[in-house]
Design a protein around this nucleic acid. Structure first.
Length: 460
RNA sequence: GCGCCUGUAGCUCAACUGGACAGAGCAACGGCCUUCUAAGCCGUGGGUUGCAGGUUCGAUUCCUGCCAGGCGUGCCA
């Protein structure tokens, strides 16, 4: 192989991450997947892989009906708010922008709401959705559903944008149902003899393909499981890409084998499915662990986090540890503007260089033969190592390797800066050579930070 | 019970897929600003890599068995 690989030779990668249900604002758990996922997209793209990033919007399941009904109940002051509905204030906000509900429907719903709370929570939940849909009528209901999803996605997009996270594609689960891809996948599984019926439900024989047990894909009540729709989604991925990478919370690790089984059952043995599990981030503030309960809206939102510690530190801290390692996110440290904080350590290195470059009278030179100090060699070696570090981060899907690379490079820079008064030297040629090296260092720091979504600072 | 992940210095973490005396930061202690930003640098102390075996010239890394923690083990998503 004489030449470096071109993009066209490399496998097209479909990278899905976050894909949180659009039922509420993103919380701090989603933040880590968002930051790592986007960093991976940039790392892979910089490594010349054709990458498509995607957010899968689950807009078809019962949780969306729960969302819609939560909003509707908040629009009717007389109705009793059900315990299984989403409690957060954001529901009220959506209800306030809504067009309102016609008086007859509202009265009926308010009347029924007494019955729901007398039932078992789950049963009440089911009845609630059915009754509300009946009273509202399909058009009015659908309008509010669309509005609710739209508003939630707006807030999710805004949160992600704060962390410089954007997507090539937003893929809606509902399009798979409308477009017939779900039925198509179902038929193909049937045709390939991977299905059977038991207890009125349709089962996928995933245990024959490496999973620990068979899985229901159509429930006895006729509803698809999340899994079936996801199979159809992955069918789409395999048809258009060579490799699918899913970033997924490690609490869902049991999901991988059945997706792999489905891939093979549909004849996509030649495609690669990579599950990258992201461990939880645990927030610490004032030396105490923050509660992560997702019930009753008692969790820390992503917005609260980046408002508190700032975008740059948030990005750096989320990416700092190996993805499959638990992350202790120390908010006090992230806010601290001192040497303990690795984010500022790296930024300070870049800022120091920027100031020198601005202050000096110099020009770029190709002659670096005068740079013979060990500190200068150390920096040069580290600069040459960048491509390797990048390749490793891409290979292992581990952005934290970029963080460690940047911290190492920053350390060499600070050492150099401390023991060599660069601008004081009488030899202009030497100054030119040294500042050329520092310019390259600043560029590399800036590039590395950019991979993490962080803008390098000129001064501090 | 079974499955996946984790266990490295007092704390938080690395360790280039099996290679040299296992490295950083913080915390502790001691130095460096009349000199380009001290948000920095230098030095000292700190380890039986959870435990016990095995494979290997060589193991934090691979295998087996324990111990501890986390997460799973739905006709939830």
């Amino acid at each position: 192989m004489l030449f470096a690989k071109q993009s066209a030779d490399l496998p097209g990668i479909y990278l899905e991450f976050v894909s949180a249900n659009p039922t509420g604002p993103l919380h701090v758990g989603h933040g880590r997947s968002a930051v790592i996922g986007k960093a991976l997209e940039r790392i892979l793209k910089k490594s010349h892989y054709p990458v498509t990033s995607a957010y899968y919007v689950n807009d078809a399941g019962t949780q969306i009906d729960t969302l819609t009904c939560s909003v509707i109940l908040r629009m009717i002051p007389d109705a009793i708010f059900h315990s299984t509905c989403y409690q957060g204030d954001y529901i009220k906000d959506i209800a306030n922008i809504g067009p309102g509900i016609d008086p007859t429907s509202a009265r009926n719903i308010a009347k029924d709401s007494m019955n729901w709370s007398s039932l078992e929570p789950e049963e009440g939940q089911k009845r609630l959705i059915a009754d509300i849909q009946k009273h509202m009528g399909p058009e009015q209901y659908q309008a509010l559903k669309t509005l609710s999803i739209h508003e939630i996605l707006k807030s999710i997009t805004a949160d992600l944008a704060q962390l410089n996270v954007s997507y090539d594609e937003w893929f809606f689960e509902s399009t798979l149902l409308k477009g017939g891809q779900v039925n198509q996948a179902l038929e193909q599984l049937q045709h390939n003899n991977h299905l059977y019926t038991k207890d009125g439900a349709t089962w996928f024989k995933s245990s024959e393909l490496g999973d620990t047990k068979d899985r229901v894909i159509v429930r006895s009540n006729g509803q698809n499981t999340y899994f079936l729709n996801d199979i159809a989604y992955h069918q789409y991925k395999y048809k258009n890409y060579d490799q699918a990478i899913n970033l997924i919370g490690s609490d869902h690790h049991g999901y991988g084998p059945r997706l792999e089984a489905a891939k093979n059952a549909l004849g996509h043995q030649n495609k690669k499915l990579t599950m990258k599990y992201i461990q939880f981030a645990i927030l610490w503030q004032n030396g105490e662990k923050l509660s992560m309960s997702t019930r009753q809206g008692q969790y820390t939102t992503l917005k609260e986090l980046y408002d508190e510690v700032g975008t740059g530190p948030t990005l750096f801290f989320y990416a700092l540890k190996k993805p499959d390692q638990h992350l202790d996110f120390d908010m006090d440290l992230a806010k601290k503007q001192s040497s303990d904080n690795p984010y500022y350590y790296v930024q300070y290195a870049h800022a120091r260089i920027s100031q020198l470059l601005n202050k000096a009278n110099w020009q770029i030179t190709e002659d670096l033969s005068k740079l013979t100090q060990s500190t200068e060699r150390q920096i040069m070696n580290q600069l040459l190592y960048f491509n390797t570090a990048l390749a490793r981060a891409a290979r292992d899907l581990e952005p934290h390797q970029i963080c460690f690379y940047l911290m190492d490079l920053s350390k060499f820079l600070h050492q150099y800066y401390n023991d060599t008064p660069i601008l004081k030297d009488p030899n202009q040629e030497l100054i030119n050579a040294r500042l050329t090296l520092l310019k390259a260092t600043a560029n590399t720091l800036s590039e590395g930070l950019k991979l993490l979504g962080i803008k390098a600072l000129e001064n501090m």
